[in-house]
């Protein structure tokens, strides 16, 4: 019953957010046609006036349709699992998402899992043994990655490992000479091309998780049950992982859930530096060109993912911390 209630609340939230987003997106200020026309001018060598006319003719948005009827059409579509239509590309948002999202999910989920698990273990270790040299090292590492934009980390990795050493490929998700399919050669190529982006992302985010874990673990350390565990003579390792770690993980699960959810928005870093064919490129394009249809679809996807992830996190708490009961 409690679970059902949670799901109902999540659905209401989603509906609320979707509605709000719809009207925010439709009211985004700015005339994207000028910017787009300028792009056309500079690549195709025609005059600005020509480009403007051409762009107007290609932009398939009918501003005269009442907003309310647009909204109803959009929500009806969503109910049928249709994320909408890109007014620019005249193709369904579902198709774009279907092709672009797996790449984003592949890179980001792998890096997220890596950075979270490494970070959480490190955080536990430094909370546990506060006087070791590991603590200042992790702190320094955190300060450095905190201050270096992921953009630079990625660029430095690219310059060292792809340009100078030539160990890893410079760009793309796989070698265009390899035919995509469920073959070992293709998977190998995908993994090979994924190394640098995953490394960049993991390197950037591990320290933050470690510090968050440490902060959380420190507050758990003073708990009576930890004392009790010591008194019972349990093994140090067991106390660290079972008693401290598990309890300290609790607030981090929320962060992880949100990170997983917002992953659907793609990562500019991966799209621009590594030329990875993820969802972020479409996101940027949609916003820059005010492709309302695509914007809405992608924003909805992100919102749905965050809300779903939060719901899962909420339900997980009860398993991680048996003291919490779902309220009736």
């Amino acid at each position: 019953m409690a679970v059902l209630k949670r799901i109902a609340v999540a659905l209401v939230t989603l509906f609320f957010v979707t509605t709000l987003t719809f009207f925010v997106v439709r009211n985004t200020p700015g005339d994207a046609l000028q910017v787009w026309a300028l792009e056309i001018v500079q690549t195709y060598g025609i005059s600005m006036e020509d480009a403007m006319k051409q762009v107007r003719a290609m932009y398939g948005y009918d501003p005269d349709e009442p907003v309310l009827s647009q909204y109803i059409r959009y929500v009806k579509g969503l109910a049928r699992g249709n994320l909408g239509t890109s007014i620019l590309y005249k193709s369904s948002v579902n198709e774009i998402v279907f092709q672009a999202l797996p790449w984003t999910v592949f890179i980001l989920s792998t890096s997220l899992v890596l950075s979270f698990s490494i970070g959480a273990l490190l955080g536990m270790a430094i909370a546990w043994k506060r006087k070791t040299v590991l603590d200042p090292i992790i702190t320094g590492y955190a300060a450095i990655t905190g201050a270096t934009p992921d953009y630079i980390t990625a660029l430095i990795l690219l310059i060292i490992f792809a340009i100078n050493l030539k160990w890893f490929p410079l760009k793309g998700a796989y070698d265009p000479a390899v035919k995509p399919g469920f073959t070992w050669e293709f998977i190998k190529s995908v993994l090979y091309h994924g190394v640098l982006p995953i490394a960049a992302y993991t390197f950037e985010n591990t320290a933050a998780w470690a510090l968050a874990m440490k902060g959380s673990a420190v507050s758990v350390l003073g708990e009576d049950y930890i004392m009790a565990a010591w008194a019972r003579g349990l093994k140090e390792r067991r106390i660290m992982t079972r008693y401290m770690g598990r309890n300290a993980m609790l607030p981090l699960v929320t962060g992880l859930a949100i990170a997983f959810g917002s992953m659907m928005g793609g990562s500019v870093l991966i799209e621009t530096i590594f030329n990875y064919p993820g969802i972020g490129w479409f996101f940027n394009q949609a916003v820059a060109r005010r492709d309302y249809g695509l914007m809405q679809g992608l924003f909805f996807l992100t919102a749905a993912a965050v809300i779903l992830a939060n719901l899962i996190a909420d339900l997980l708490y009860t398993r991680l911390d048996p003291r919490i009961r779902l309220e009736e």
């Binding site: 092709q99 797996p102 790449w103 999910v105 989920s109 265009p176 995509p180 399919g181 998977i187």
Partner: peptide
């Protein structure tokens, strides 16, 4: 999870 991620990426309709 890792294996899953890889499989998901591989099964996905290739982008190009």
């Amino acid at each position: 999870l890792l294996i899953l991620a890889v499989v998901v990426a591989a099964c996905a309709t290739p982008t190009p």
